[in-house]
Nucleic acid binder design. Structure first.
Lengths: 166, 166
DNA sequence: ACTATGTTGTTGAGTCTTCAATGATTCGAT
DNA sequence: ATCGAATCATTGAAGACTCAACAACATAGT
């Protein structure tokens, strides 16, 4: 039964383990710094960034979820927290009464701008300072390939979910 | 005050965003598959792998924590869950009465071996199938550089924590 | 107009992680 | 031998995420 399995080669295993170590170390590093600097998870910061880049600093919840790669539920919980801090405001949408808008408040923008320099510094220190230009370019290629591969995979899964029994 | 900040270039931003997307998509993909296949988080699977590679399938909790990149506390909670499932056994350590050993049970090994083929398949599909040999090699370099950089950073932090006021 | 179906967003329960506090033991210096 | 500091592991509470269930509304077909 194991004969069909394409196990990883020695080299692939080494790379995979380094990948796991590097990504978890990096995300824990950013997480810790963001928690200290702004008192929120790194992912919440990315939500604020997404909002700040939208016209009028406003997006529909579902659109914000896509841009932040949050599930609807996760975003709903997150925005509840961010609203409690006064950094985001929810408004109900008149054209589609199911919908809701999320808007970055002035206070939210201030927090974002205050946290940004430290965040960039952290990303630089952990990533771009240790890579040369060639490696940065390659990393772009590699991550692009992963994204494309998984995007296909996701579409396939959604297609399966959509179809009932035939 | 912002003048000292080394902001990211356009290219760096693009790469950074792709990095975030790729790593989160990949980890969510593995997470989902592991949850479906074995009913545990992907990181718990890695804990079992670490144990399976140790002599006698046994490690001190603190050593297991290092190898799985878990905090002591996180590992303690995790092992509690894994013990409840009967996949890991805790034994108190006679030579150091503070310590505890964790051992992979027969049942745990069976679960691990049952989950392994699907897991490898997932890693292949999401990562190695979409990269050529050159890219895999580069990914090894890049992740190695990140690990080395953050290891230094961590040591510096620990050194700070260790020293009191001077 | 009416019903079936799909979409949007929220909620609650359960799970996982972090953080700080704790108990138990070992080590080092006096 | 003893006192203080460091180490090992666990615990409980609080925060964050997932999943399934749900309410409210929109859309399309009849």
């Amino acid at each position: 039964m194991n004969e069909g399995v394409r196990w990883l080669t020695e080299d692939e295993q080494r790379v995979w383990r380094k990948y796991l170590a590097a990504t978890s170390m990096l995300s824990e590093y950013l997480e810790r710094r963001m928690q200290q600097d702004a008192g929120i998870p790194h992912t919440y910061y990315e939500v604020l960034v997404s909002l700040s880049e939208a016209p009028e600093c406003t997006l529909r919840m579902s659109e914000l979820a896509v841009r932040s790669r949050f599930s609807r539920s996760r975003l709903s919980h997150a925005v509840t927290k961010l609203e409690a801090k006064g950094w985001v405001v929810r408004t109900s949408c008149p054209s589609d009464k199911r919908g809701a808008w999320a808007t970055l408040s002035e206070q939210g923008r201030a927090v974002l701008e205050a946290a940004a320099p430290d965040h960039v510094e952290a990303v630089r220190k952990a990533l771009f300072d240790v890579l040369d230009a060639e490696q940065v370019h390659r990393l772009g290629e590699i991550t692009g390939a992963i994204i494309d591969g998984l995007a296909e995979e996701c579409e396939a899964v959604e297609a399966d979910a959509g179809e009932g029994a035939d």
